[in-house]
């Protein structure tokens, strides 16, 4: 009845990087994030028949990933055994004796929103990258995100540098347009 169907063989290509960015923003560790998406995909396969098609594939996978992240934090918390509270009033520095009030966060600072906003920005960019044609997607990711050198990419993909720059140019132009639509118009 519904239009949404699962295509597990395309999951890695379509969603792996998006989920990876989503997870890494929450667990702050690449290895843990990698394990979490692996578990997410496996759980997705296992409960594939429960998928009703009410949400898109990605939303559904994100929902699973969220549970996995919660499970991860539960696990590391139970390993510790007990909660621990430590309070340090900078006892060992020269600020000893200063008023605690001087150390509270600056209420006018906008910096604490930065991390949040950057995460949203990251997901918006990843969204746009995922709409690129496969080859451009690959080259742009290798060059910009993984920071590989032109030479390495050319060797790995068997293309020449001018080829690479053409693809980079097309990818960048497409991304500028996409971000203009999806990020700046919010």
């Amino acid at each position: 009845m519904s239009e949404n169907k699962l295509h597990p063989h395309t999951w890695v290509d379509q969603y792996a990087n998006y989920l990876f960015n989503y997870a890494i923003a929450r667990v702050n560790d690449a290895e843990v994030a990698k394990d979490l998406i692996q578990e997410t995909f496996f759980a997705g396969l296992k409960s594939a028949e429960n998928y009703m098609g009410a949400a898109t594939e990605r939303t559904w996978l994100i929902a699973i990933l969220k549970r996995k992240i919660i499970d991860h934090y539960r696990k590391i918390n139970s390993k510790k055994g007990k909660a621990e509270i430590r309070m340090q009033y900078k006892a060992n520095t020269e600020s000893e004796g200063d008023w605690l009030e001087e150390q509270v966060a600056d209420p006018f600072s906008l910096q604490e929103n930065d991390a949040l906003e950057n995460e949203e920005l990251g997901l918006a960019i990843q969204d746009c990258i995922d709409t690129l044609p496969e080859k451009q997607h690959l080259v742009f990711t290798m060059k910009t995100i993984r920071g590989l050198s032109t030479e390495d990419i050319c060797n790995e993909l068997n293309i020449n540098p001018s080829n690479l720059w053409v693809m980079i140019h097309r990818a960048r132009t497409a991304l500028m347009g996409c971000l203009n639509e999806n990020w700046f118009k919010l």
Binding site: A16, F20, I125, I145
Partner: peptide, 10 residues
């Protein structure tokens, strides 16, 4: 923007 977003890729 790309720098600010700290993107990661597998």
């Amino acid at each position: 923007l790309c720098d600010k977003a700290h993107l990661h890729a597998l």
